[in-house]
């Protein structure tokens, strides 16, 4: 399983990387939506994208729209991980095609719970 972690903060990418690596994922990191798209245009088809909303160059919302518009990536699961926490913003992201939504701040358990909901838990999770 492969996770593409898209966040302009290196600290946040590091936090997310450690969580999903513990769950058995390989990871690729991108600091904005365009860098993530470049990885995918280059042949990377991740099982999961963890996507921040506010980023330079291309934000997470635009990234979700771009991925959903392209049939090559219809099996990629998109999960927003963002501080955007208004009701309306969550509705927008889901309408654009995001499958799940985690609001920052979160605990590692929150990511594990959501991946379980999405059927994307691959490794045994220690209790």
């Amino acid at each position: 399983m492969h996770a593409l972690i898209i966040d302009d903060s290196r600290a946040m990418r590091s936090i997310l990387r450690r969580i999903v690596t513990d769950l058995g994922y390989d990871t690729t990191e991108a600091e904005h939506g365009q860098a993530a798209l470049d990885h995918m245009e280059g042949g990377l088809v991740p099982d999961l994208c963890l996507i921040d909303w506010n980023m330079p160059v291309m934000d997470g919302y635009q990234f979700v729209q771009r991925v959903r518009d392209d049939p090559r990536w219809r099996d990629v699961t998109l999960m927003m991980v963002t501080t955007e926490s208004e009701h309306g913003q969550i509705v927008r992201a889901l309408a654009a095609g995001a499958h799940e939504y985690v609001i920052k701040p979160f605990t590692p358990d929150a990511i594990v719970d959501k991946l379980e909901l999405l059927g994307l838990l691959v490794a045994e999770v220690p209790a």
């Binding site: 903060s9 506010n54 501080t83 955007e84 926490s85 208004e86 309306g88 913003q89 920052k104 701040p105």
Partner: peptide, 14 residues
């Protein structure tokens, strides 16, 4: 960023 985003949600939006 995290504090700001959540403060934004406390105030009238969008």
């Amino acid at each position: 960023n995290m504090i700001g985003g959540n403060v934004k949600s406390l105030m009238p939006g969008p």
